[in-house]
């Protein structure tokens, strides 16, 4: 009955069950259908690239943690695994293994750890890795193979617009980077994330909505543009990265819509066929500003008394 061993702490004395680690592994779980579809369409290449990229990302994180004299167990938070998987799934199937490894190292070291690790990076690390690979190995990064083959190169739907039907785009039997071809698998993952409270609908809805509306206004086929390229993968899994996106609900709308606008500008008038990477990276850069602009009005501030 004596109180000598009682714990004293400030309220609240109970916590929500969700943890950062659970959030990260929920994303990993949501990526499984995407990876499975990629493996179905592109076979061993999918397993090779995603595994290499993931293992490298986790290993690079562990090495940096040792150098920074931080507990190595931090890699267990799952964030490096998410980065590795996302990078791997954004690569073309025929990419040489060493490039995937290099991309993953750049993603973790330059994209994340130089800024201070988890939570401190301004840019989506997977997209930093991808942008590095596109800039360095533009040929390898834009050479795609047709599904169910290892060697036959093929143009992606965005380059050769008339070659594919909606159903092919939806199920994923088109050429493209590993995880981007199957809209179905991405939607499954996205619905799972939404259901688990990990995904804020504002970003994908703003992103896809603004892109579709703009494409329609410019006389393009909006459904084709939503389903092709890496737009869906990016809108569901990359633009919703919590660390690099605004923390206010209003800011998330602005972020999503901004991504859509930039994507359309690049797809229609840029020199690249796809604008996903840069649309998100540019909006990542604007995130601190958006957070500042969209400070919620504090309860009771700026209101008049009743008399």
């Amino acid at each position: 009955m004596e109180g000598s061993r009682l714990v004293i702490s400030l309220s609240p004395h109970i916590r929500d069950k969700d943890t950062t680690q659970k959030i990260m592994f929920t994303v990993v779980l949501a990526l499984i259908p995407v990876w499975a579809a990629a493996t179905y369409f592109f076979g061993f290449n999918s397993i090779r690239l995603v595994l290499l990229s993931s293992i490298t990302a986790v290993a690079a994180e562990a090495v940096i943690m040792v150098i920074r004299r931080q507990p190595v167990t931090a890699v267990l938070d799952g964030s490096a695994l998410v980065t590795g998987m996302l990078l791997g799934l954004s690569l073309p199937p025929s990419l040489p293994s060493w490039m995937a490894v290099l991309g993953a190292v750049v993603a973790i070291v330059v994209g994340k750890q130089v800024f201070g690790g988890l939570g401190s990076n301004p840019f989506n690390p997977a997209l930093v890795g991808r942008a590095f690979l596109v800039a360095s190995f533009s040929k390898a990064m834009t050479t795609w193979t047709a599904p169910f083959t290892d060697t036959v190169t093929a143009a992606t739907p965005l380059i050769n617009q008339n070659a594919v039907s909606y159903s092919e785009l939806f199920f994923g039997t088109t050429a493209g980077s590993l995880g981007e071809t199957s809209a179905l698998a991405i939607l499954l993952g996205g619905i799972f994330l939404f259901y688990r409270g990990v995904l804020d609908y504002r970003i994908p809805v703003g992103f896809l909505g603004s892109a579709a509306v703009l494409m329609f206004l410019f006389g393009e086929d909006p459904i084709f543009h939503l389903l092709s390229g890496s737009l869906l993968l990016g809108a569901v899994f990359m633009a919703t990265d919590m660390v690099t996106t605004p923390i206010t609900p209003k800011g998330r709308w602005i972020f999503g819509i901004g991504c859509g606008v930039i994507l359309v500008l690049i797809r229609l008038w840029g020199s690249l066929p796809e604008g996903l990477t840069y649309s998100i990276l540019l909006m990542n850069a604007a995130t601190p500003l958006i957070n500042r602009w969209t400070r919620p009005r504090i309860f009771g501030q700026g209101v008049k008394t009743h008399e």
Partner: peptide, 17 residues
């Protein structure tokens, strides 16, 4: 580390960040 999930902003009844 904070992962900027924004949940604290969403739940704050005083509308703070």
């Amino acid at each position: 580390p904070c992962i900027k999930c924004g949940r604290c902003v969403e739940v704050c009844p005083a509308h703070l960040m």
